[in-house]
Design a protein around this nucleic acid. Structure first.
Lengths: 147, 147
DNA sequence: TATAAAAAAGATAAAAAACTCTTTTAATAT
DNA sequence: ATATTAAAAGAGTTTTTTATCTTTTTTATA
């Protein structure tokens, strides 16, 4: 098990790709996204459908349709995607699921886990989707962009 | 989704309890463990069975039987339990599951995730089961010990 | 040695996550 | 208007995770 569910991984990889690919305008189809990020196409479709319904990513149907981000969406933090897909279990609650664990009555690893989870949350909150659009990410981002 | 699978959470909570409860000798039964850590008894039985087969926890059958830790087992790091149950996905690989991601060709969050995952691994490696036995944990650990 | 206690083993069931397929709707262009 | 393109919606299926139940084996002790 990694940090995220597979669904969430597909979602994040998907938005990485959409952001990069449509940085200069235009849209990108599920087919292209799925191929680029190595995910099952119909499954990814469902995931993006959901994110689209939530307004996290934009989409249009028909010829030249596809997925893209509007200006506002580019400002959203990655945390919103993670929360939408996996919930907030990564950020809150006891690290080992102890009901009785709390600030006043912490489990043996409470503070250590809290620290780490705060870091995860902070990272995902401070990182916006827009950070994956620019040329500055061309060498960093691992997709080849083609045309 | 939290950091660990439910199975792994039960395992960790279980060993917390066994360590604490048998610190002064003796054994503790699945029934008692399950009740204390709020887990389904037969499921926990399977989990401990597995850990027992791996030699991570000790057990004996029959009257006054149950689970306990021998000296060596108390030295084991928590990481071994996590790896046995959830694998090493929390520690290694790309945080978002990108095949192409590596040190030379890192994904946009590679280094940030690496840092966090290293911290998780370090925490779990440096923490041994034996740390959950002593009186020093009585106020910290959230189980009530009874008799 | 018989009985009881407790874990091990095996087989099954239920729920959730991951994934697929088919039909419908919306947008565009001819 | 019609045809085409591409996402949305809906209805499955498969796999994995979580959980249960029953039988067997081992150990202690009366």
């Amino acid at each position: 098990m990694g940090l995220f569910s597979k669904t969430c991984e597909y979602a994040i990889r998907g938005i990485f790709f959409i952001a990069r690919k449509t940085a200069g305008g235009g849209r990108v189809s599920i087919k292209d996204i799925a191929a680029a990020i190595d995910s099952p196409e119909p499954f990814l479709a469902k995931i993006l459908q959901d994110l689209s319904r939530r307004g996290i990513v934009q989409s249009t149907k028909g010829p030249n349709g596809g997925f893209y981000f509007d200006k506002d969406s580019l400002k959203r933090p990655l945390a919103e995607i993670v929360e939408a897909v996996d919930g907030n279990g990564l950020f809150i609650g006891c690290g080992v699921g102890l009901k009785q664990c709390s600030e006043i009555n912490p489990c043996p690893l409470h503070n250590e886990f809290k620290n780490i989870r705060n870091q995860i949350q902070h990272l995902l909150e401070k990182t916006s989707i827009g950070e994956f659009t620019g040329d500055i990410n061309l060498g960093i981002i691992s997709f080849s962009i083609g045309n």
